[in-house]
Nucleic acid binder design. Structure first.
Lengths: 188, 188
DNA sequence: GTCTATAACAGGATAGAC
DNA sequence: GTCTATCCTGTTATAGAC
């Protein structure tokens, strides 16, 4: 509790960080609408009005809380891509960035989150399409992306028993041929 | 406008129907939280308090609006199942029951919708698992279900360009091998 | 009495005063 | 940084119409 001794700028930085952490957790857990400024403030141990003071609006707080690092692009072939997708899936809920969960949680009900999701998924589709040969690369890339989204939603957000109780290697094993089938008409 | 001449019971039935239709549309469009009782009442051309009088709570209105007929069970083999899933997907947004869309729209942010979704998806998984051979039938069935959910979310709810601009037969053609790969390790 | 409309309350986001 | 006032929710209580 030596925060009183810190310079103003540093204290402000830490407070903002605490607020953003609390916001990420709550947004990821309950979505945009059910998350109240008051609850965020309580979780961060600050005055509710301070949150408004710092971020201006709940909208803007959300925007900064879910800001997610863009996917690092890399030229891979189709099989490597499948492996990478499967790898990303096997992350546990605690490890997967809360900001992504927060965005996914609200993407069906909050316009801003929907826009972010479309943008992020679009980038993912672009990246996949670049590594897939053929006329219909974009369609295949989009379907691969939606397959991963569906499985992630069922696993992380809906927490279906059928997916939660199964070791990730098992999921990966069953899912791999299905994703491979989407990379192209023939396994050259 | 001869409604005045109808018996009370009939008038009430129609008014309830109008309210439920309006609620379904709004819930499907904006989700549970962003749908206000007042907006539903306005769309149905009734007084807001009437909605409460009839349904008791927004929760109960939602419950009745999204009540969806259970999937008719049928013993099919794996390939027929894939065809059926693909067929269900090709329904356009206007044809797919609004009640299902309403439930899907809110399943990530509204606890009641989440419970309904788990139940409905669970039934779908059971049905699929019965038609799939092997130890891991339930896992495969769950993944098939989530694949369909992901594609549906991308298509109907997120309305991704990559899926909206493509004819359904095209989607079906690309998706079919991927679903087949989930029905079992070998195509007997 | 049953249906409909009005008013009042509690909790939320937000703007402005202090 | 904090407090207060305003507006919009869901919900309940109350009054009026048939």
């Amino acid at each position: 509790m030596s925060e009183r001794l810190l310079p103003r700028a540093e204290r402000r930085r830490r407070t903002e960080g605490r607020i953003l952490d609390a916001a990420r957790t709550l947004f990821a857990d309950m979505g945009f609408e059910r998350t109240t400024i008051r609850a965020v403030a309580r979780a961060a141990a600050v005055d509710p009005a301070l949150v408004m003071q710092y971020f201006g609006s709940k909208q803007e707080l959300f925007r900064q809380a879910v800001r997610v690092a863009p996917v690092p692009d890399a030229g891979l072939d189709a099989d490597e891509l499948v492996d990478q997708l499967i790898g990303a899936l096997s992350m546990k809920i605690g490890e997967l960035p809360q900001s992504s969960l927060a965005m996914m949680r609200s993407m069906l009900t909050h316009p801003e989150a929907a826009a972010s999701a479309r943008e992020l998924l679009g980038k993912q589709i672009d990246r996949l399409a670049d590594s897939i040969p053929g006329e219909d690369a974009r369609l295949r890339a989009a379907l691969m992306t939606m397959v991963m989204l569906g499985v992630t939603v069922g696993h992380q957000l809906l927490e279906l028993d059928e997916l939660r109780d199964v070791p990730q290697e098992e999921i990966a094993r069953v899912l791999r041929p299905s994703l491979r089938a989407l990379t192209g008409p023939t396994v050259s």
